[in-house]
Design a protein around this nucleic acid. Sequence first.
DNA 1: CTGATTTATTATCTTTTGATAATGAATAGC
DNA 2: GCTATTCATTATCAAAAGATAATAAATCAG
Lengths: 194, 194
Amino acid sequence: MKTEPIFSQLYLQVNKMLPLNQKEWDAFTGIFIFRSVPKKFNLVRVGDVSREAYFINKGTARLYFEKEGEEISANFMFENNFIASLESFLLQIPSRQAIDTLEECELLVMSKQRLDELTLDYPKFHIFSKAIAEMAFIMLQRRASSFILDSPEERYMNMLQQRPEILARVPQHMIASYLGVTPVSLSRIRKRIA
Amino acid sequence: MKTEPIFSQLYLQVNKMLPLNQKEWDAFTGIFIFRSVPKKFNLVRVGDVSREAYFINKGTARLYFEKEGEEISANFMFENNFIASLESFLLQIPSRQAIDTLEECELLVMSKQRLDELTLDYPKFHIFSKAIAEMAFIMLQRRASSFILDSPEERYMNMLQQRPEILARVPQHMIASYLGVTPVSLSRIRKRIA
DNA sequence: CTGATTTATTATCTTTTGATAATGAATAGC
DNA sequence: GCTATTCATTATCAAAAGATAATAAATCAG
């Protein structure tokens, strides 16, 4: 496939779920804009309607809730993944989650409006959206089930096993809220394990 | 739309997300089989690959995990909703969840294989699957976020507000595990509130 | 490099939840 | 209708987590 270098990582990921010909691929890449943003850059605010989703070429981003002034992390995403406030993006309603970068990021910004237009022209992109939603559901379910099945300590161990990148690239107090505990409690859990 | 009476409830739900002509509707209903099952009937077992999803015409069903002999409820579904072990159904891998009926149920059983065949013939049913996955994601996210944002007491209050049917139709010890607490603890929460 | 800020750990105390057991209420099956 | 079983509440005790504060370690900005 002929494509600009900035789209090569996206190509590898999308091609897995939906093989495209040159014309479809060009139409698809046309809905993205490249954007380079610094560390701690705010991409989505709570209350805004999120009209964009982000494919991460490089860097780390965080999805989080705000509750009584506190930031409570919902997820962390790294290279070669999409990140979005999916509920807001899909339904075009005010977002209950915010997105920030944790490191300097190189992003491909996908426009919701242009995705919808693209899908009108090429209905096969319903398959792309379906794959994204199914994947998001399955990832979330694995994570959510750990909240009813496991103790905070078990959740921490699972995270180490399944997503060791998080420990390496995310500050500990953000991991704490991701696991549903306070930073103090996570520190105690780490001490118990070691 | 001309259709058998057993499909009238399904029609109302599906028509909202995906309008179909007569031919498409007939092809769609062709992938379902009507099945009447008693109370406490097991529909999906942990470890089995779930090749079916269920639309509930009447009754209540429960999705649950098994952990160390305990049953931990993941969700409850009533009339006019689908229930499935979605991860197993979508990926055709062994299910980590089981499904039982809580009341006598009248079900429309959808075959995964026939859904796939239908979608080959009529690609627009990708839109149906997309809508199901997106809805499942959004419902699950609202529920999952309550595990990191709210206390068990707040979760119970939210459930009363948002899904009062559960309190009316589901035994309390099953609600307890759904909220992530023991039956004893739920009893204490109820006492505090009253 | 250095002072200021943020982050992680530790200690203390309180609150909440879990584990277990006992009792009473409700339900199911014969 | 009666007995057995399941289910919900209450009590007691133990374990875990939250709140707060103090300190140490790491990071950041100028």
